[in-house]
């Protein structure tokens, strides 16, 4: 990450996560919930990629599948040189220290029967052969880093406030000095006043420790100043992946546009230009996504081709990738997935 020439630390290629549906008396495999259906992106070392989208669009699933908390159905997830998606169990376990996750619900993600010290030091038991004192020292160090009073070291999770719990979650994630952290809506369950504190903490830590983040959120304004680039997801696919400021200034994909129209615009000039787009209808089920563009059932600018041909995620402007027929020459939609990857690679 200290290289002058930035190289991607994380490369996701065509990641798919399908949850099988079994029905009937004999639990026959009758279909799949296509929670993530072909997602590709890179994250440069030391940077943050924001991942936004409506609830249920598959954001958490992307995060979990990347860290092999789910077994991905297809695709590659290269993190720091290893394809996590195919790593053998033991190698995966060894790999875990490099990649960590901060969870959405700080209460549920901490084992209620373990004290702070146990929670934070447990990964150390597994991955180091330090003495007790060394481990305790590290726990204290981490508590300092995330701003927790050392006195609390033997408390149980339920004895902390929500913000403090999320700090524990962060300390825990940091324990093994990871390089990459998936932050899955780390602030969604927190009070607005505390949200800022935690976000600031994450930013400070990134700066100090040179961390790389995938920051999942449905709060677009929060992502805006955290992430260098933002991916907008819809129904298991990426609709648009653009540098943050470009996206917020001028969303290209109709879905991104609709999504952003609902966000408060701090700049009064831009706010004046903005008109709110209300989407009609419901998000289709990921078990049965529409043919063609998966946004076609709700898109205000839908065309005939949209209902039959799936648009690929292509670079339509420098650094900006969009999956929409509006931005591709009509009829020239035969671009292969390999092409998609190549383009993405070239641009970084």
């Amino acid at each position: 990450m200290l290289d002058a020439q930035p190289t991607p630390l994380v490369q996701v290629q065509d990641l798919k996560m399908h949850f099988p549906i079994y029905t009937g008396l004999f639990r026959k495999h009758t279909g799949d919930v296509k929670a993530v259906d072909g997602v590709s992106f890179d994250i440069l070392a030391g940077q943050t990629l924001g991942l936004v989208g409506e609830s249920g669009c598959g954001k958490s699933t992307v995060g979990r599948a990347m860290l092999r908390l789910y077994e991905p159905t297809a695709g590659r997830v290269v993190i720091d040189g290893d394809d996590v998606a195919t790593l053998a169990p033991e190698a995966l376990r060894k790999k875990r220290p490099t990649m960590q996750m901060v969870f959405q619900d700080p209460q549920a993600s901490l084992n209620p029967r373990m004290t702070l010290a146990e929670i934070v030091s447990e990964p150390l038991d597994e991955h180091t052969n330090w003495t007790r004192d060394q481990k305790l020292e590290r726990v204290y160090e981490l508590m300092d880093q995330v701003g927790l009073n050392r006195r609390f070291v033997n408390r149980f999770p339920h004895e902390f406030s929500g913000g403090q719990r999320q700090r524990i979650g962060i300390a825990r994630a940091l324990a093994l000095k990871p390089r990459f952290i998936v932050c899955d809506e780390p602030i969604a369950a927190l009070d607005v006043s505390i949200q800022a504190q935690v976000v600031n903490l994450l930013e400070d830590l990134q700066e100090k420790l040179g961390l790389t983040y995938l920051f999942i959120s449905h709060d677009l304004s929060m992502v805006r100043h955290l992430a260098q680039r933002v991916a907008v997801m819809y129904l298991g696919r990426i609709a648009e992946l653009s540098p943050s400021k470009d996206l917020y200034a001028r969303p290209l994909h109709p879905y991104a546009e609709a999504l952003l129209s609902a966000v408060n615009e701090p700049d009064p000039v831009l706010a004046a230009q903005r008109k709110r787009i209300i989407l009609k209808g419901d998000v289709p089920s990921p078990a049965n996504p529409p043919k063609g563009c998966n946004f076609c059932t709700r898109c205000p600018r839908v065309m005939d081709i949209c209902r039959t041909v799936k648009p690929d995620l292509l670079e339509v402007e420098p650094g900006r990738l969009v999956a929409c027929h509006l931005y591709t020459a009509a009829g020239s939609t035969g671009a292969s997935e390999a092409n998609e990857r190549n383009q993405q690679g070239e641009n970084q």
Partner: peptide, 21 residues
């Protein structure tokens, strides 16, 4: 539960995850 995912994310062995957590 999320804390089980946490334990897996920590890189704990499957045994530890199931028996301890």
């Amino acid at each position: 539960m999320d804390y089980v995912r946490t334990a897996r994310a920590k890189g704990m062995s499957e045994r530890t995850v199931v028996l301890k957590h």
